[in-house]
Simulated assay, not measured.
Amino acid sequence: MNEEITLKLTTDEVAIIVDALEVDLEGYLESAKEARGNGNRADVETFTEAATRIQTLMTKLQPHVDD
């Protein structure tokens, strides 16, 4: 499942992906916060892991985005 792939993207395309990931990240962080408030540890763990993975990918992509 962790097969490496090679893509050719423009910096604009990478920026679009990063923007979409930011929205997803915010959603997962909010969901983790709600789950924490509800005492649902399993969901907190799931949403936090997803947020962490998204943040890692964003960090990897960010250097390829024009400012």
Rank of each mutant, 00 (worst) to 15 (best):
M1C: 03
M1A: 05
M1H: 08
N2C: 00
E3W: 02
E3V: 07
I5R: 01
L7H: 00
K8D: 02
K8R: 08
L9M: 00
L9D: 01
T11M: 01
T11H: 05
D12T: 10
E13V: 02
V14Q: 04
V14I: 15
A15M: 04
A15W: 00
I17C: 01
I17L: 04
I17H: 02
V18N: 01
D19V: 01
D19I: 05
A20Q: 09
A20I: 02
A20H: 07
L21S: 00
E22I: 07
E22G: 08
V23D: 03
V23C: 06
D24M: 01
D24K: 01
L25W: 00
E26T: 14
E26C: 06
E26V: 08
E26F: 11
G27D: 03
G27T: 04
G27C: 01
Y28C: 02
L29E: 15
L29K: 15
L29V: 13
E30K: 15
E30M: 15
S31C: 06
S31F: 13
S31L: 09
A32G: 10
A32W: 04
A32S: 11
A32C: 04
A32F: 09
A32M: 09
K33D: 13
K33E: 15
K33A: 13
K33R: 06
E34Y: 14
A35E: 02
A35I: 13
R36Q: 12
G37L: 05
N38F: 10
G39V: 05
G39K: 06
N40T: 12
N40S: 06
N40D: 15
R41S: 13
D43F: 11
V44G: 02
V44A: 08
V44W: 07
E45L: 08
E45K: 12
E45G: 08
E45R: 11
T46G: 09
T46I: 12
T46V: 12
T46S: 12
F47W: 13
F47Y: 15
F47N: 15
F47K: 10
T48P: 01
T48W: 03
E49G: 11
E49M: 11
E49P: 03
E49H: 11
A50M: 12
A50W: 08
A50P: 05
A51T: 03
T52P: 04
T52W: 07
T52K: 12
T52G: 11
R53M: 14
R53G: 09
I54P: 12
I54K: 06
I54H: 03
I54G: 02
I54S: 05
Q55K: 15
T56F: 08
T56P: 09
T56R: 14
L57A: 15
M58F: 09
M58W: 07
T59R: 04
K60M: 14
L61V: 03
L61T: 14
Q62A: 15
Q62I: 13
Q62D: 13
P63G: 04
P63R: 05
P63D: 03
P63A: 04
P63T: 12
H64F: 14
H64S: 14
D66V: 14
D67G: 11
D67V: 10
